[in-house]
């Protein structure tokens, strides 16, 4: 280790890593709830609802997460609510995740053969029952690999919330670097930590994908 870098810094980085994981989970869970609603809206029978959901997705996917983050951060400030950065960060990430997961899941739902829906409708099931009992269980299998893959995206995205002062892994690394200026070592270690979180998920997603393809053949 280069001089100046000591155990305390490492602990600080690990704490940051903990926040990164927590923030990712929050973003994923709440973004997942939002994404489920976005998916439902995208397959709605009402054209206006489908349109609105589509606009939402296009806008969120057409604007950098960094800008969404700033808008939420300053927006909450304007509303006069003084919130910890965690709330702004979580909200921005949730919006971001909901659009992407909504799109991924819509694709999965639409990948379930139309004949399955038809057969279920012919058995007098309601639209919601068809979705819950027949379509979703099959869509989940299809959706799992890309959803796990998206988790990697979420983990990496959380690095951006460092810009509003939330001390997760990237911010922690920045803070340390500002004091001892060992950028290669510090950002290198942070990079390794991110890699340790992301790479297993990437691998897992790939394995799931392969299994799914084999199962379908």
């Amino acid at each position: 280790m280069p001089t100046g870098f000591n155990l305390n810094y490492l602990i600080y980085l690990f704490q940051g890593m903990g926040w990164t994981v927590l923030l990712s989970l929050l973003a994923f869970v709440f973004g997942g709830l939002g994404g489920f609603l976005v998916m439902l809206a995208r397959i709605s029978r009402i054209e206006a609802v489908r349109r609105i959901a589509n606009v939402y997705i296009q806008v969120v996917q057409g604007v950098p997460l960094l800008i969404i983050l700033f808008i939420v951060y300053f927006g909450l400030g304007i509303l006069g609510v003084s919130m910890p950065p965690l709330v702004a960060a979580g909200l921005a990430l949730m919006i971001y995740c909901s659009a992407f997961l909504g799109e991924i899941w819509r694709g999965s739902v639409e990948a379930v053969p139309r004949t399955q829906t038809e057969a279920a409708e012919c058995l007098a099931l309601t639209r919601w029952q068809v979705l819950r009992d027949v379509v979703l269980p099959q869509a989940i299998r299809i959706a799992t690999p890309p959803t796990v893959g998206f988790l990697v995206q979420v983990l990496k995205s959380t690095s951006l919330v460092s810009v509003i002062g939330f001390v997760e892994l990237t911010r922690a690394a920045q803070v340390i670097n500002n004091t001892i200026f060992q950028p290669f070592a510090i950002f290198g270690i942070a990079g390794v930590m991110y890699f340790a979180l992301c790479y297993p998920l990437s691998l897992w997603s790939r394995i799931l994908e392969r299994k799914l393809n084999v199962g379908r053949r």
Binding site: T115, Q116, E118, A119, A120, E121, C122, L123, A124, L125, T126, D133, V134, Q138
Partner: peptide, 18 residues
């Protein structure tokens, strides 16, 4: 749905729920 309860249909491609 009442109609669909009265009328059963079987397709060429079975369409069982896998």
């Amino acid at each position: 749905r009442a109609l669909r309860q009265d009328v059963g249909i079987v397709f060429q491609s079975y369409n069982l729920f896998p």
